[in-house]
Amino acid sequence: MDTFLTPFREWLAAVPWWGAFRALVVLALGLVLARLASGAVRRGLTDRVDAQQVMLGRRVVFYLVLGLSVGSALHQMGFQLGVLLGAAGVFSVAIAFASQTSASNLISGLFLVGERPFSVGDVIRVGATTGEVLSIDLLSVKLRTFDNVYVRIPNETLIKSEVATLTRFAIRRIDLAVGVAYREDIDRVRDALMGLADREPLCLEEPAPLFIVTRFGESSIDIQFSVWAERANYLEVKNRIQIAIKRVFDEQGIEIPFPHRSLYAGSVTEAFPIRIVDDRAAGDSGDG
């Protein structure tokens, strides 16, 4: 039995228990200190810089303090930090090859933080995804879409693709496509559209609404009617203006045409044959 336990006892005797205890204390203190420092950064910066910079500052301070305490804890356990860093240098080459995607996202994240095309709280559109930016992290950006879905977009994707920040400027233009029948008087249509924009208080008077006849379409004269609105009112104004267009066109008898086709017989000059059915005559004969 003693023979069996001897290696275990030797191992126990070899473990630097006092050093391990000190390392644990340093680690625990480091964690507490990191949290306190991170909280202090948040309180100190909240009113001075935007949410993204606050988050970045908190993370830098947290991981810096935590990294220092981990290094100190390892030192307490007798590890030589110089040797560790040297080993880390050798391993980092291998790790870099093994984690190219993560490294790419990391570098892209640094570019994103430096370039600042958007901040936490902005609404962005990336490809088919539109949502509010919840956080900008080292590897990815997290969005909340308007149907309340949590979307993670790798930073590399953001660097490579077109990103539209919808909340950068205070006002936005709403482009509406309107089609009217060929028989309508364009000036009357213009007056009707400009009038309804003038009556809508949320629609900006300046920049003035735009009325552009874009083309003569197959079934309608196509018009682009653009109005400006405060960013916060974008959807409401878009909705109200479209409802108002339908109402005003109905009131003034302006036709919004359905797509239609003119049919010709194989020979353009010959008419389609018409068969007249006299239902009344058929009914009368039935009765008789």
Binding site: F169, A170, I171, D198, E200, P201, L202, C203, L204, E205, E206, P207, W228, A229, E230, N233
Partner: peptide
């Protein structure tokens, strides 16, 4: 409630006002 309007040198710089 007056209509909203934008007052500024461009659509980037300026402020939302009442017209």
């Amino acid at each position: 409630r007056p209509s909203d309007t934008w007052f500024g040198p461009s659509t980037v710089e300026g402020q939302v006002c009442y017209a």
